[in-house]
Amino acid sequence: MLPWSIGVVWFNAMEVVAWVSVWMVGWGTNSAFPLVGGYRFLAQGLAYELPHMFALITVALGAESLDFGEIARAQDGLWFVVWMPVAFLVYLLSVLAMAFWGPFGHPVGHDLAGGAVLELAGPDRLVFEAGRYALLVVASAAAVPLFLGGGAGPLLPGWAWALVKTYLVLALLVWVRHRLPVIRMDRFMTAAWVVLIPATLVQMLVVGIVVLG
């Protein structure tokens, strides 16, 4: 029913559902620490979402389309990662944040004895963790058509290159997991609003000028 032409908006809408799910898990278990974890994730969401959206808008502006396929095709000559490096870095950061992964794991932090997932066990925990890993994988996969030229590459067919690139992005994110300390939300909020939002806006301005020129 939904056309491919709004793929990026749909992707954005569905990833925001993570806010609802983490907060609901935190609130629904009727326990103090998980609730704090849920609220931490909301604060994190407010911090990462605006730079993330600007990164997506920059890509859409560069490709003049919201269709993942069109965006991948628009990178025929030059991958977006080359001339939109700021947007790509912000995108990777926000993927870590939306899956509350590694340095952004404050909502499920050890200082909260497990945070939002504290009370979950058995199948509940399995579903929650599966969703979290799926979010990380899907967001890594989305980076391929958004920034890394989709299926473009020598020798191998398109789908194989898409898979290889997805795994490379995913490997990077998984590698980061325990190599950076966990960031406190209020600090990241300051960094996101004072540094990342202006940086992505400048990136968008550059892309806009290139597209118009």
């Binding site: 939904l2 907060w23 609220y39 909301l42 407010l46």
Partner: peptide, 26 residues
């Protein structure tokens, strides 16, 4: 709205309302 073929606006309503309601939780 999606039913009216306003796909973009419909998905935008979904996106914005989720964020808005979570901000309300804040």
């Amino acid at each position: 709205m999606v039913l009216l073929d306003l796909h973009y606006l419909g998905v935008l309503v979904v996106l914005m309302m989720i964020m808005e309601m979570m901000v309300m939780a804040v």
